[in-house]
Design a protein around this nucleic acid. Sequence first.
DNA 1: CGATCTGTTGATATCCTTCAATTTTGGTGG
DNA 2: CCACCAAAATTGAAGGATATCAACAGATCG
Lengths: 255, 255
Amino acid sequence: MKINPLVAKLSHFAVLSAEEIALLESLCVNEESFPAHVDIVTEGQVPRSPFVLTDGLACRYRVLRDGRRQILTFLVPGDTSNLHGFLIQAMDHSIATLMPTRIAMVQWEIVMGITTGYPRLGGALWWSALQEEAIMRERIVSIGRRSARGRIAYLLCEFVWRQRAVGLSNDDEIRLPLTQTELGDAAGLTSVAVNRALQDFRRNGWIKFSRGRLTLLATEKLLDIAQFSQRYLHLDGAPTPIRRYFDQLDRAGGA
Amino acid sequence: MKINPLVAKLSHFAVLSAEEIALLESLCVNEESFPAHVDIVTEGQVPRSPFVLTDGLACRYRVLRDGRRQILTFLVPGDTSNLHGFLIQAMDHSIATLMPTRIAMVQWEIVMGITTGYPRLGGALWWSALQEEAIMRERIVSIGRRSARGRIAYLLCEFVWRQRAVGLSNDDEIRLPLTQTELGDAAGLTSVAVNRALQDFRRNGWIKFSRGRLTLLATEKLLDIAQFSQRYLHLDGAPTPIRRYFDQLDRAGGA
DNA sequence: CGATCTGTTGATATCCTTCAATTTTGGTGG
DNA sequence: CCACCAAAATTGAAGGATATCAACAGATCG
């Protein structure tokens, strides 16, 4: 039986109670399947209900007037979206699948209920939002200041670390069915530049990347080129005093 | 008497009650002054307490190994930061002032109290977080896909719209004491490229920008170059059904 | 009223884009 | 299983936008 990726992700924040785990798992029952390369949500529309991506891969993106696309972030299993979308009138970006993907719809009243009734889970959701913000900040740094090779190395590292964090990998190999054009759309590069960076990495024997599978063969080298630090993912979770605070609330509420 | 910028900002989300406004204003009493160009928070440190920027200008930034800097976002009056910083162990970026700046410290227990006790304000804070995320996404698009002129035009437009949103401007003129190097650090450009973009705008008579004051003289032209749409700021606030939902909670709780 | 930071300008270098094939891969139907 | 097709990857050549380097002018501030 596969570990629920949302539980895996939020467990990095703090040790969850059995009740909390059960609640998170119950969020993921109402699944819906999407084929590859279709919009889940489209810019300008009313946000669809909150959801958890349970399997597959998706991306947030925007398209410019001239048709060029910028991928903003990737959604991997365990990632949530639109949790608070009900607070805004219209989406400012689109979300599309990149491979066959399953998402579980959640009613926003339930999200509100978690916020008010389950302090530690509410904290975990905020923590998850902080992580997503940090991922975007790192992307800004990457696109703004790094070379093509640095940007690609950084993207590859991020995928490996994020997939590990939700239990989808135990080593340096992951599933990554992205085209070079898609990588370029995420890195602010053309597919030609992506190709040349990947060729370079391959010829140096630092990666293996074909048929939708990526293997880091020289992790240290890639970390160095990317200037990647996993700190921004905040996988060490909440500080001890905060964990204790939530534990106390547990005892108070559960008594 | 000046309008509290935090109240001004969150009022875009929904009409706030007198009690809520009083609470927000009470958050801003514990002010601290910082001179220009000092760190408020530094990468790697334990996050300082939550705060509201009440006056001045600051930026989030990261510095690369080679000393180059990338400014991630700007903090204008009314912006909050570290509201949930207590959930993480260490800052993944720094925050520095760009001019003499005042910030009001807030205890995190009070933030938690708002989340649990004041649903509409809790929603407003989430909405504010959504806005900040959207600002970052727009920055990614800008840096990833726009030309130097597009990036600068976009930054200028964003400043004008954000300052208007918190009552700091009624027209096309704002206070903006940034150097060209700082603009470049935000746009992923060198100061030379910024200079040439600004020269171009000035020579075309589209902007006036000196002594820390910016005036948009040809707003339409700049909006066009930047491909700027104010949609991402979500200034139209919460959808009507959601406002009603919060109103009902008001009556239920206040009865 | 000097010292320093900021802005401005020109020349050159470089990385990435653009354009245009050509090859390879992966999928599909016969 | 193979032939075929479309999508993706690969490669080369040329052009362009921005970086880099360097010098000087102008502004700001104790």
